[in-house]
Nucleic acid binder design. Sequence first.
DNA 1: CGGATTTGTTTAGTGGTTGAATTATTTGGC
DNA 2: GCCAAATAATTCAACCACTAAACAAATCCG
Lengths: 369, 369
Amino acid sequence: MNGRLMSPSRAPVRQSSVRAHNLALVLQTVANSADRPSRAGIAAATGLTRATVSALVDDLIAGGLLTEHGPAPRNGAGRPATALALSPDGPAGLGLEINVDYLAACVVDLTGAVRHRFMTGAPSLAGLAELAERARAAAAEDGLELAGAALAVPGLVGAGGLVRVAPNLGWQDVDAIAFLRGVPALADLSITVENEANLAALGELWAGEGEPTFVYVSGEVGIGAGIVLDGDLYRGGRGWSGEIGHVTVYPDGRPCRCGANGCLEQYAGVAMVAEDPALAAAALGIALSAVVNLLDLDVIVLGGGYAPAFGQLRDGIEAELSRRVLTAGLAPVTVRPAALGADAAVRGAAGAVIRGVQEDPARWLAQAV
Amino acid sequence: MNGRLMSPSRAPVRQSSVRAHNLALVLQTVANSADRPSRAGIAAATGLTRATVSALVDDLIAGGLLTEHGPAPRNGAGRPATALALSPDGPAGLGLEINVDYLAACVVDLTGAVRHRFMTGAPSLAGLAELAERARAAAAEDGLELAGAALAVPGLVGAGGLVRVAPNLGWQDVDAIAFLRGVPALADLSITVENEANLAALGELWAGEGEPTFVYVSGEVGIGAGIVLDGDLYRGGRGWSGEIGHVTVYPDGRPCRCGANGCLEQYAGVAMVAEDPALAAAALGIALSAVVNLLDLDVIVLGGGYAPAFGQLRDGIEAELSRRVLTAGLAPVTVRPAALGADAAVRGAAGAVIRGVQEDPARWLAQAV
DNA sequence: CGGATTTGTTTAGTGGTTGAATTATTTGGC
DNA sequence: GCCAAATAATTCAACCACTAAACAAATCCG
């Protein structure tokens, strides 16, 4: 989602890159600030000089990304600071989701507030297009310009956003981006497609407890995981990371629809959780122990169908983790339920769009002229 | 090992950062070049102007990192180019390794050439210090200055290089860095400690087929894995990633010394490979399938004790992978033996040091005055 | 030998940051 | 009520690193 500017980057850096970076730095400092910081506060937090921060902030205000809020009363002496905040009228993100039994769309503004939500129960590409149009119209009525759209799909997404396989939708090699771009009302939007669990993990990153590194496990018909490392989604070489549903739990166990035996999905699918929570918890614990042993994560977030059953799953999972994670004795592993419910993926999708703006405001400023 | 300059970086960027980045860009372009590139060639490859490249190259030559080689005869018209190459007299790296039954040290120069190797069979901290001193003396005799040292340890390394646990050495909370810094001959060196498998993976990254993303699995008494993503080592939140030896393969299987049951280590330790290669291969295949499903890697490198047994393991591993990796039908997973033998970790350690110089030459130039 | 061609350097110009000085706006003491 | 102290924000000269374009150097080829 973001490139590295430092080491193995093969791109030259010029002054404009410096400005682009520092614009992002200032914008993100405001975004991550609990209160509304002043220019001087941003300078102190970032290490930039106040002169530079002023210049950068001017650009961001002119571009509609930041707004000034009247001087807050101070407690000591000195000129009062003018508070800065993300502009609720800045570029918004359109999140879309297509799933087995519903469609969803939502509009999130630059501040992260959900401005509109739509759902229907008839999952089809045509319905998705219609929902997207409605969401865009609602955004336009608020005077919101969209910075782009992201679509969450329960399947494997390949290069260029091509959906290679989405078993529960019956999709194979579906070019959802091309379809959406074909809709007149969406033709000018930049659209991306991403795995549902990955976007839900991003949603959790934004709306949850704020841990920068965790694995989000979503239990639905299938089981997917989104891996967030250091505030960034880990996608893997081809974007197919997090297929925890087909991690082997019992090598000679139940046959899976994927052709293997003993996949986690056969023991901890959402139907199993209701039927035999102890079995599901043990299987989840075994698979999650592998995740922690391999990736050294200390936070596990249970989402989707697992969140409501958290109370029934927790002990079983933690028992396996404490037994099977090599470093369990050195540092604890936290298991917690997701903060977001069923709309984690749509909100993550919309959030991914505005996060893109926050991470590279210079691009937005350039194209918005 | 390298910081991100772009997004979630909280550091301001100034002009000197631009220079630092572009110095690294030029140096790495030379390092990764098959032939000896010219200034003009570097400019074309990087996108910088020839004027800028000239200025950067001058700095790198003055700092002893690059050398000019007389003009190579050209085939077409035009002024002949002056070839540039990494200086074999530039800063070198000292690699150290302590393992169950041996100690090793090696000196690798900036070009990646192994200049000296030492081994002894008496593993102790005192022996390690002596070996390090000998290696440093040998380097000094060649006129080589050391940029630092890295130590490979078969155990879990915590913050600050503290070795939390190294079962096969009988270590617990050993501060190896403090010990080595206490040795007069090493007092001025910057020293890091890293898990053995992680450094071996880096060694393979440098000396192997050059895939940027892979998992390196080292089979010794224990089993460790080093995960390399996009040319960079993945360490996990606390540096404890890659503990594949304790991934559960058979949930109710053989008890492991870690307290769990059915850990990979109990089925594919190096002793098992000799005894029952089919069992080891199946267990490895199951655990590696989990790795691929979770991380979406397409290359698996078998090192350590697995490399010589590769022929006996390959088919069994590949059979499990093709059955259990969800995306096996979409893209193949390659399994290959390691290019380096027992010295992968020491060489990786030394390589990590010179890689550090290549990734941030500005720091070296500044401190070397 | 002269034009074509490519390498490498020089020089003026530009963009972005710094640091110091300046202006602006408040609190608090006398 | 006024002045000093304090903090916020802006202005301006200086500096640094890059670019673009012109220039110098070194070779090939007709």
